[in-house]
Simulated assay, not measured.
Amino acid sequence: MSRNHIDATGLSAAGPASFSRLPATRFEVLGAISVSHFLNDMIQSLMLAVYPLFKGNFHLSFAQIGLITLAYQLTAAVIQPLIGAYTDRRPHPFSLPIGMFFTFFGLLLLSIAPNYGLLLTAAAMVGMGSAVFHPESSRVARMASGGRHGLAQSIFQVGGNVGTAAGPLLAAWLVMPNGQESLSWFSAAALLAIVILFFVGRWYRHQHRLPKTARLAIAAAPLPKGIVRRSMIILVLLMFSKFLYLTSISSYLIFYLMDRFHIPVQQAQIHLFLFLAAVAAGTLFGGPMGDRI
Rank of each mutant, 00 (worst) to 15 (best):
A24G: 05
L67D: 06
E181R: 11
N161V: 00
Q80G: 04
Q157F: 02
Q64L: 11
M143Y: 10
L11I: 01
Q266W: 07
D291C: 04
M42H: 13
L67F: 15
P114C: 10
N4S: 08
S145M: 07
S250T: 13
G129D: 10
G99Y: 09
G201F: 08
L30S: 07
V29H: 05
G127V: 02
P114G: 08
L210Q: 13
A190M: 08
I254C: 09
G159L: 07
S45A: 15
A278I: 05
F243H: 12
L60N: 03
A171W: 03
A63I: 03
I6F: 09
H206S: 13
F19M: 10
V265K: 04
P211W: 06
S251N: 12
A152M: 06
D259A: 14
H92L: 15
P222Q: 11
S145R: 05
Y245S: 13
G127M: 04
T69N: 11
F133K: 05
L246A: 14
N115R: 05
S20Y: 01
A166S: 14
Q153L: 12
A268G: 03
A166I: 08
L60G: 02
I227D: 13
A76D: 14
V140A: 14
Y256L: 12
A63W: 05
L11N: 13
L107Q: 09
H208A: 01
N178S: 07
L246G: 00
L238I: 10
Y51L: 09
I234Q: 14
L119W: 08
L216K: 13
G290R: 03
L46S: 03
A124S: 12
I83G: 06
S138Y: 09
I196W: 12
R260T: 09
E136W: 07
L108R: 02
H262E: 14
L183D: 11
R148T: 00
L109D: 11
A76V: 04
G56F: 03
I263L: 10
L110I: 05
I270P: 01
Q207F: 04
P222S: 11
W203R: 03
T25Y: 08
V29G: 06
G160Q: 07
A193L: 09
V29W: 07
V228A: 14
L39W: 08
L11R: 08
I233C: 05
H59L: 14
P177G: 03
S20C: 05
